[in-house]
Design a protein around this nucleic acid. Structure first.
Length: 730
DNA sequence: CTGGGGAAGGGGCCC
DNA sequence: TGGGCCCCTTCCCCA
C-alpha cells in the first residue's frame, strides 16, 4: 500500500510559479480591466479563488470590473493575494496605498471570502474594523454578484461588473464611426505594474471624439476639455505616435501629445494634476493606481484626473516606487532600453504583454514554431537579436531562458519578425530546433535556468543572470553561433532550401546574366513568385503563406502576420489615436489617415477620375468611383466635358496587380509602362502586359529602363496603376 | 428607397 | 519597427 507523501513546499512552489508566470503574462488567458488598468491572470486561478470570478472568466477572456467597487490599486493587492495567499497591506499613512477597507469591500464584492475574513481580522487587529460598515465597505453595497446578471456574453454598463466579449463574435468594435457605447470600449492599458497595464481613466471610454466629421463640433474649442487626454499612449508598448503636424500646437489642446514626450513626464504630472484633478493631495508623481486607491475615491474621479497616465511607457515609463521588483520579478524586455532612464522590469513585461506574449497558446502557435523550424535558418536572427538584447536582458531572452518547472521553457520576448512565431511562446521544440541545443529540461536537473549560448544550467534566475553578465557581445557573436553560423549568412536562409544562401553568398557580379534581375530582387518566395530585395522582407512575406499567424492580439485573439499590424490593431482596441488634425481635432490611428484627412481641410483632391473628371481626396474613393464607371460599361466614349470615357468591359486594363507584381514593379512603375505605351495608343497594353508576364520582371525592368518615379496622383498612369487590377481578369 | 459620394476604420503587405 | 500605401469595407449624407 502506498502511503501518501507530501512535499511540504509543493503548494508554495506552485503558487510561486504561477505568480511568476502571471507577472510575465505567461499562459495568462484572461485580462481583467479595472478602470484604466489591465491585469493579466489565469482563469483557473481566478476561478479557484472566487465563485464570482469563476462565473466571470468561464465565458470571457476580458473582464471589466466595476471600478467603483474595485480600484486598480485594490485589485492589484487582491490579485497578489490570490496568487500568493498574502495580503500586503500598504502603509496606512500613505495616500497611495490601498487601505484595508477598500480591499475588504472589493474582496466582498468579488466574493473572496478568505480575503474578507483576513481583512476583517487585520482590521480588528488594527482596531479599524467598523461595527457598522460604511456603504463602501458593505459587501455588494452597490451591487453584488447576485445582482450582476452573470449570464455573461452580454455587455453591461460600466456601473456593473462588465464582461466584454473579446473574441470574434463579441469583439468590441472600436473602429466604427458609429461610436459604439463608450463603456464598451476597452480602456487603454497603461502599465505600471507587472502584468498590469494602464489606460487613461475615462468614464466615457477612450474615444470621446465623434468619429465622423459631421458629428464634430464646428470648433475644436467645443470639444470636451478632457477629450484629448483620452487618446494617449499605452504604457509599455508605445502604441502612440505623435502627430507630427500637430505636435507643437497641440501641446495646450492635446496634452496627450505632450505626454508622449519624455521630458514632460514629471512636470506634467504635477501641473496637470493640479489643474485637473479634483482629488486633494494628489501627488503628482504618484503611481496612477494609487491615486485611485481609496474606496471613496475610486470611481469618483473624472478621467482627466490622471493626466500622468498619458505618459508613454517604453523609454518614457515611470514606474512606481511602490512596486517591489523582487515582488514582481520579471526580466527586462529587450525592447526596453535600460539606458533610457529608469530601468523597469515592468516595462519589459508590459511591453511583452502586447508585443511578445500572446495570452493563449494554441496548437496552431506551436505549428508556427514548427513552421519556422522547417524553414530553418532563422536562428541566426535570434542570434542577432540576442546580441542586441543582451545588455538589457536580465533573465530570459532566447539565449537565457528559464525552463519552467513543468518542463516548459519560458522566455521573454525577443527577436524580430524573423523569429516571430516563436516569440513569447513556450516552444518545446524551439530551443532544440532553433539552436540545436542538446538539452532537454530534464537534463538539467535542478538547473532550470539555462543560458542558451553556453548551454549551462543554473538553479536560479539570479545565478543565471550573474552568469549572463559574463558573456560579452563579442562572445555572443563569435561563440554564440551554436546551431547557426554567421548570422548574416543565415539570415537569408529563411526558406530552408539554401538557394538564398547561395545567392547571398555570392557577390552580385558573380551571378549569371540570365538572373540579372535577381540582383535587384534576389530573394524569391518559395510559395509564390514574389521576390524581394532583402531577406527580411522575404521572411516577412513568407509569413503570409503560413497557415497560422504568429502575432495574436492579446485582447481579441485575432492573429496577424506582422507584428506591426498587430500593434496597429491594438491601437484600435485601445482607442489610441495619436495623430490629431490641427484644424478640427479629429484623431487618427495612423499618420496616413491624417494626411488623407487633411485634404478635406485643404480642399486638395489629387485623385481625378479620367473618365468624368471627378476629383477625390481619397484614392480609395476614386477607385470606388471607377467601379461605378466600370459597372456602367459605357465604352470608349467621351464624356460631356470631353474626357475620354473608358471601356472597362473589354479587357482594356489587363495588367493586374498580380501581373504588376510578377513584373516586380510597383503599380506605379507598372503604370509608367502603361503611360509610356499610351504614347502610341491610349490602351495598347493588353499585349504588352502579356509579354511582360512572360518575361522576368527584372529583365523587363532592365529592358524598359523603368524609372521608379511614381506618377503624379490623378495622372493617367496613376489611374491605370491604381485601378486596372479591379478590371483585370485575374 | 436607392445609388453615389465623402469619409473613415481596419487588414495586408512592402520598404 | 514603423511608415506608407493599397485594398476592402462600412457608415453617413444627400440627391
Amino acid at each position: 500500500m502506498l502511503h501518501a507523501m507530501e512535499v511540504p513546499s509543493h503548494a508554495r512552489h506552485l503558487l510561486l510559479q504561477l505568480n511568476t508566470q502571471r507577472t510575465k503574462g505567461f499562459l495568462c488567458d484572461v485580462i481583467i480591466v479595472v478602470q484604466n488598468a489591465l491585469f493579466r491572470a489565469h482563469k483557473n486561478i481566478l476561478a479557484a479563488s472566487s465563485l464570482y470570478l469563476k462565473s466571470l472568466v468561464v465565458h470571457d477572456n476580458l473582464i471589466n470590473l466595476d471600478h467603483e467597487m474595485v480600484s486598480p490599486g485594490v485589485f492589484r493587492v487582491i490579485l497578489d493575494y490570490i496568487y500568493t495567499g498574502r495580503l500586503t497591506e500598504g502603509d496606512p499613512s500613505s495616500p497611495t496605498e490601498p487601505n484595508l477597507g477598500a480591499v475588504l469591500a472589493a474582496a466582498s464584492y468579488l466574493q473572496l471570502l478568505d480575503l474578507v475574513a483576513l481583512c476583517k481580522k487585520k482590521m480588528r487587529r488594527n482596531g479599524k474594523y467598523p461595527l457598522r460598515p460604511t456603504p463602501a465597505f458593505l459587501p455588494y453595497g452597490k451591487m453584488g454578484p447576485n445582482s450582476l446578471g452573470l449570464g455573461g456574453g452580454g455587455r453591461y454598463r460600466v456601473s456593473t461588473p462588465v464582461i466584454q466579449s473579446c473574441y470574434p463574435g463579441g469583439v468590441v468594435n472600436t473602429h466604427t464611426p458609429r461610436a459604439p457605447p463608450l463603456e464598451e470600449l476597452p480602456p487603454h492599458p497603461h502599465a505600471t505594474h507587472a502584468g498590469e497595464l494602464y489606460a487613461p481613466t475615462s468614464s466615457q471610454g477612450p474615444q470621446v471624439f465623434p468619429s465622423t466629421p459631421s458629428a464634430l463640433p464646428a470648433q475644436p474649442s467645443l470639444r470636451p476639455a478632457h477629450s484629448d487626454r483620452n487618446c494617449s499612449p499605452i504604457y509599455g508598448l508605445d502604441l502612440s505616435k505623435k502627430s507630427p503636424n500637430s505636435q507643437s500646437q497641440n501641446t495646450p489642446s492635446h496634452p496627450h501629445l505632450a505626454h508622449a514626450l519624455p521630458h514632460h513626464d514629471e512636470e506634467r504630472e504635477g501641473g496637470l494634476s493640479g489643474r485637473t484633478s479634483p482629488m486633494p493631495g494628489n501627488n503628482g508623481g504618484a503611481y496612477p493606481t494609487e491615486k485611485m486607491e481609496t474606496a471613496d475615491q475610486a470611481g469618483s474621479l473624472p478621467p482627466h484626473s490622471y493626466p500622468h497616465l498619458n505618459k508613454p511607457l517604453g523609454p518614457h515609463l515611470h514606474r512606481s516606487s511602490s512596486q517591489g521588483p523582487d515582488h514582481y520579478p520579471c526580466p527586462l524586455s529587450p525592447d526596453t532600453p535600460t539606458e533610457a532612464g529608469e530601468p523597469s522590469r515592468e516595462v519589459g513585461n508590459i511591453y511583452r504583454w502586447v508585443k511578445h506574449e500572446p495570452l493563449s497558446y494554441t496548437a496552431e502557435d506551436e505549428e508556427d514554431d514548427e513552421d519556422e523550424e522547417e524553414r530553418g535558418g532563422n536562428g541566426d536572427q535570434n542570434h542577432q537579436h540576442h546580441n542586441h538584447h543582451h545588455k538589457a536582458g536580465e533573465e530570459s531572452d532566447d539565449r537565457y531562458r528559464r525552463v519552467g518547472c513543468d518542463g516548459e521553457e519560458e522566455k521573454s520576448g525577443s527577436g524580430s519578425e524573423g523569429t516571430g512565431s516563436s516569440e513569447g511562446r513556450p516552444s518545446p521544440t524551439g530551443a532544440m530546433g532553433r539552436f540545436h541545443l542538446p538539452y532537454e529540461p530534464e537534463s538539467f536537473g535542478d538547473n532550470l535556468y539555462v543560458c542558451i549560448p553556453c548551454d549551462k544550467g543554473f538553479p536560479s534566475s539570479e545565478q543565471l543572470n550573474a552568469h549572463v553578465e559574463t558573456h560579452t557581445e563579442e562572445e555572443l557573436y563569435s561563440g554564440g553561433e551554436m546551431g547557426s553560423s554567421n548570422p548574416k549568412n543565415n539570415s537569408s536562409n529563411s526558406n530552408g532550401n539554401g538557394s538564398l544562401n547561395s545567392l547571398e553568398g555570392k557577390s552580385s557580379h558573380s551571378l549569371t546574366p540570365g538572373v540579372l534581375g535577381e540582383i535587384i530582387r534576389p530573394y524569391r518566395c518559395n510559395s509564390c513568385e514574389k521576390s524581394y530585395k532583402d531577406p527580411a522582407t522575404l521572411r516577412q512575406h513568407e509569413k503570409t503563406h503560413w497557415l497560422t499567424r504568429p502575432y495574436p492580439c492579446s485582447i481579441c485573439g485575432k492573429k496577424f502576420t506582422q507584428r506591426g499590424t498587430m500593434t496597429r490593431h491594438m491601437r484600435s482596441h485601445l482607442g489610441l489615436k495619436p495623430f490629431a488634425c490641427d484644424h478640427c481635432g479629429m484623431r487618427f490611428t495612423r499618420q496616413y489617415r491624417l494626411t488623407e484627412h487633411m485634404r478635406i481641410h485643404s480642399g486638395e483632391k489629387p485623385y481625378e477620375c479620367q473618365v468624368c473628371g471627378g476629383k477625390f481626396a481619397q484614392q480609395r474613393n476614386l477607385i470606388s468611383h471607377m467601379k461605378m464607371h466600370s459597372s456602367g460599361g459605357g465604352g470608349g466614349a467621351l464624356t460631356a466635358d470631353g474626357k475620354l470615357k473608358l471601356d472597362f468591359s473589354e479587357g482594356i486594363y489587363p495588367l493586374s496587380k498580380y501581373a504588376a507584381e510578377h513584373l516586380g514593379l510597383k503599380q506605379e512603375k507598372a503604370s509608367e509602362l502603361l503611360a509610356e505605351h499610351a504614347m502610341e495608343s491610349l490602351f495598347p497594353l493588353s499585349k504588352l502586359a502579356a509579354e511582360h508576364l512572360r518575361l522576368s520582371h527584372h529583365d523587363k525592368m532592365d529592358v524598359l529602363g523603368v524609372q521608379a518615379l511614381p506618377p503624379p496622383p490623378g495622372s493617367l498612369s496613376d489611374f491605370h496603376s491604381r485601378t486596372i487590377e479591379r478590371y483585370s481578369p485575374s
